[in-house]
């Protein structure tokens, strides 16, 4: 199954989405990421019981913070799939790609370009 997903999606592997912290996601935006999505196992199917549920709550926290500071909460998303669902992974990354394309680049990059 050699499926293509958008080439500008950078995959960062973690042992479980429960490992992904609010700080990690914020740091990605700070460094210029246009969007971040956490893709975890299906709810109820976490090998560590609640890692993906924690990740969802953390993504929600990130969304709130991004909305507050004017970056836009929609840029952070959480998706769930089983590890056997490669086509769904592609679909989610494409969704994210489309969403970000619609939203435009990270406002921090625009502000930086404006200042220069």
């Amino acid at each position: 199954m050699r499926l293509d997903y958008p080439s500008n999606v950078k995959v960062i592997r973690v042992p479980c989405t429960g490992k992904v912290d609010v700080q990690h996601m914020l740091r990605a935006f700070e460094k210029g990421a246009d969007g971040v999505c956490a893709i975890g196992c299906l709810e109820g199917d976490c090998h560590f019981n609640s890692g993906n549920l924690r990740a969802r709550k953390r993504v929600e926290q990130v969304q709130k913070i991004l909305d507050t500071i004017g970056i836009g909460g929609e840029r952070a998303q959480m998706y769930n799939l089983s590890s056997a669902e490669a086509p769904l992974f592609v679909k989610h990354t494409q969704n994210m790609y489309e969403k970000i394309k619609e939203l435009g680049p990270n406002p921090l990059k625009l502000a930086k370009a404006k200042a220069a």
Binding site: L26, I69, A111
Partner: peptide, 21 residues
């Protein structure tokens, strides 16, 4: 420490967005 990281990151982004260093 974690909350320090989150708040500092949020503040940095807020100011950057305002075009301020």
């Amino acid at each position: 420490k974690k909350e320090v990281g989150i708040l500092a990151s949020a503040l940095r982004m807020y100011f950057k967005k305002q075009g301020r260093d």
